[in-house]
């Protein structure tokens, strides 16, 4: 991955920085430049907002065939999490056995490695989720 491509997303990846529409107040994660509700009325009015990221599992899968970056972690859990703040995000669930995950399970964010550009490249960090 090109370094700037990851680097520019660091606020969201490390600290769950999303956006809030200055027009209607609706919040978004991942961040958006335009509010899908307010359209042009929101242009230039989207403000950064930090999410706590506590929430529950909407759905999940246990991945056995993984991309290169995740081969060492199989089997691992991937899930869609609905934050208490109302938005949803996709992420890995860690510190949980595959047989223990279930729809509705409470989780909270954790800080983990999410990839690296090989042994000599940059390491990418970001959010995952763990049972709360």
């Amino acid at each position: 991955m090109a370094i700037p491509r990851f680097w520019r997303e660091i606020p969201s990846r490390y600290n769950l920085i999303g956006t809030e529409c200055g027009n209607c107040g609706k919040r978004y994660f991942p961040p958006r430049i335009i509010c899908p509700e307010c359209h042009r009325k929101s242009v230039g009015k989207m403000k950064d907002v930090k999410f706590q990221g506590k929430g529950e599992v909407v759905t999940y899968s246990i991945i056995h065939h993984a991309p290169k970056a995740y081969e060492m972690q199989v089997p691992y859990i991937i899930a869609i999490i609905e934050f208490e703040e109302g938005v949803r995000a996709t992420g890995q669930i860690i510190d949980c056995e595959p047989e223990d995950v279930e729809v509705g399970m409470r989780v909270e964010p954790a800080f983990r490695k999410i990839g690296e550009d090989g042994k000599s490249g940059v390491i990418y960090y970001g959010y995952k989720f763990k049972p709360a």
Partner: peptide
């Protein structure tokens, strides 16, 4: 450490 943990992730978890 888990496969996705290193000194930085441990440091961040402790700091938080």
């Amino acid at each position: 450490p888990g496969p996705d943990e290193d000194v930085i992730t441990i440091a961040v978890e402790a700091a938080r």
